[in-house]
Amino acid sequence: MLGAFDYVRARSVEEACRLLAERDDAVILAGGTDLLVEVRNGLREPKLVIDVKAIDELARLDPSDEEWMIGAAVPLNRLAEHRAIRESVPALADAALSIGTYQLRNRATLVGNLCNASPAADAAPVLLTLDAKLSVAGPKDFRTIPIAEFFTGVKRTCLTDGEVVTDIRIPAPPQGLKTVFFKQQRIRGHDLAVVNVAGSYDPTAKTLKVAVGSCAPTPVLLEPTEATGSTAAIAERVVELAEGATSPISDVRASAEYRRAVLPVLLRRLVDRLLSERSGA
């Protein structure tokens, strides 16, 4: 038994928000792959677990013309196997597939990965480069949080009591957008990131966005760069920006020294992959 909580299968977002606000120590259960481990390990002792998987709208995965919507209950495998996602934003599929094991991804969700707010969250860097926003339902009203404002520290977000993330919205990717995700692990099998990076390049606007994970208390979006000049020069600019924006630490997974050494390598490879085929490069 995983502690002594009660369970409710919420039927609507309103119900979930209400329960979350009313009841002490209530938590949202989507995939459960982080929550149940934390409960097992005694790190959390919820009294009520509110399952949101039965709320129809949270199960929506809807890439439409203007805005793509990924519901909070969509498991990672479903997301990664979605044709439009794979074709238009392959980095998002790659990041999703780099999380945990196949079995875990049949439960774990993109929203859960973000709400857990690990500095190493694999989905975060890609979503940062895609200007994703989180739709949040609260006890009183709805709000939208740009992902760049969502993380406030290690395992901390700007969500307040009673707020539930219902989905993630991504502006429909512009024509020709290139996205890449790279992750350095300790082993090829399932692992948390030692360093993860993501980038998107819009060939029309000629802008390059890069984000870095596992190298600061939160995933970090670097200042967007204009993709002009040689690929190598752009890469060095990105590396410089990243070095200014991150502060890797040593932990059981890697030393700060190793993270500092690998980060520029991944960034150079990322920029190269994004820009090497650009016309006029």
């Binding site: 299968r9 459960g32 149940l36 481990v37 945990g100």
Partner: peptide, 29 residues
């Protein structure tokens, strides 16, 4: 392992492979 890392408890839940240690029984209703 009890934390979804080893796969020994893999079962099919509505046809999908999942680790049964990270699914509540009540979720399988």
């Amino acid at each position: 392992c009890g934390i979804g890392e080893c796969g020994a408890c893999t079962v099919l839940l509505d046809g999908a492979a999942v680790t049964a240690c990270l699914v509540l029984a009540v979720e399988a209703d």
